[in-house]
């Protein structure tokens, strides 16, 4: 099945350079994470390749979301959460004292499961983070807003009501606005935590197409429970499993290999739907 789906053939909407020579942008080394002393992630070692979409799959509670939030150090905000091990982004250790977390998070956009538009106007949703990062020239901000809204396919839908509340948008539009908000800061990496799971199938399809279109230009790490979706959009897949309540990386590889000839029997059982 899906024989014509080659993981390295980019879709017709692709705009960036082709993803042919894997270059590890994020290098995760022996990453462990404890909440309150209980291990939630157990020594993960993984490379995430530049310009590719890497899907994190696995059952609930296996630490995919936790893994995602270690990359932009959102775990710093969780009390009694302890991260050990190394994450290098472009060769730089993100836990190094010289690494400024605000700058790091500017380089790494994040999209959450439920769309979280701020209760502000559509325009302000996009301009607020820009202003906070020192982009204050009005024409520059306006140009970026138009560009990112265009990129996520919202421009035609909202250009005449940018000052309306972002909460008046539909769920799918809200999620695309959140993606636009992340893109406005011109990140290199996009972390997506089940960005389609709270959306209806139509909106989900639109967002999925959008993610495909972003491939190449951004390095995307996406958590998804939707195996068909992972199969459709991902270049690489990492399969997590939970052992004694600790999430472990069982298998990582090209998405085609993970789905069609998994090496590990747990992976095989999961992608075939017999486990998990």
């Amino acid at each position: 099945m899906n024989g014509n789906h080659d993981a390295f053939t980019l879709g017709p909407l692709e705009t960036g350079p082709a993803c042919c020579v894997p270059h590890p942008l994020i290098q995760v080394r022996n990453l462990s994470l404890q909440y309150d002393g209980k291990t939630a992630l157990d020594t993960i070692t993984l490379d995430i390749y530049q310009g590719c979409i890497t899907a994190l799959i696995g059952p609930s509670g296996c630490g995919k979301t936790s893994f995602l939030s270690t990359i932009n150090r959102l775990t710093d905000l969780i009390p009694r959460c302890n991260v050990t091990g190394q994450i290098l982004i472009g060769g730089q250790d993100i836990h190094h004292p010289n690494c400024d977390v605000q700058t790091l998070r500017r380089r790494i956009g994040m999209v959450f499961q439920k769309p979280v538009p701020f209760p502000l106007s559509i325009r302000r949703n996009l301009s607020l983070p820009l202003n906070e990062h020192g982009v204050t020239r009005k024409d520059e901000v306006a140009a970026i807003i138009e560009q990112v809204l265009y990129d996520v396919g919202l421009w035609d839908e909202v250009h005449d009501r940018l000052d309306a509340s972002a909460l008046s948008l539909s769920g799918g539009q809200q999620q695309r606005l959140c993606i636009a908000r992340a893109l406005a800061l011109n990140p290199e990496i996009l972390l997506m935590d089940e960005p389609c799971s709270a959306l209806d199938p139509m909106a989900s399809g639109v967002v999925e197409d959008l993610i495909c279109r972003l491939q190449g230009r951004y390095t995307i790490v996406i958590v998804t429970h939707n195996l068909a979706q992972a199969r459709r959009i991902a270049n690489y897949a990492a399969f997590f499993w939970v052992r004694e309540r600790a999430g472990q990386l069982v298998e990582f590889g090209r998405s085609q290999q993970i789905f069609e000839s998994p090496r590990h029997e747990l992976t095989a059982a999961y992608v075939n739907g017999s486990r998990g």
Binding site: L104, R106, G109, V116
Partner: peptide, 12 residues
Amino acid sequence: AYRLSAAALGMT
């Protein structure tokens, strides 16, 4: 979610 989103956008 607002706090997390703001933090993820690199806002203080």
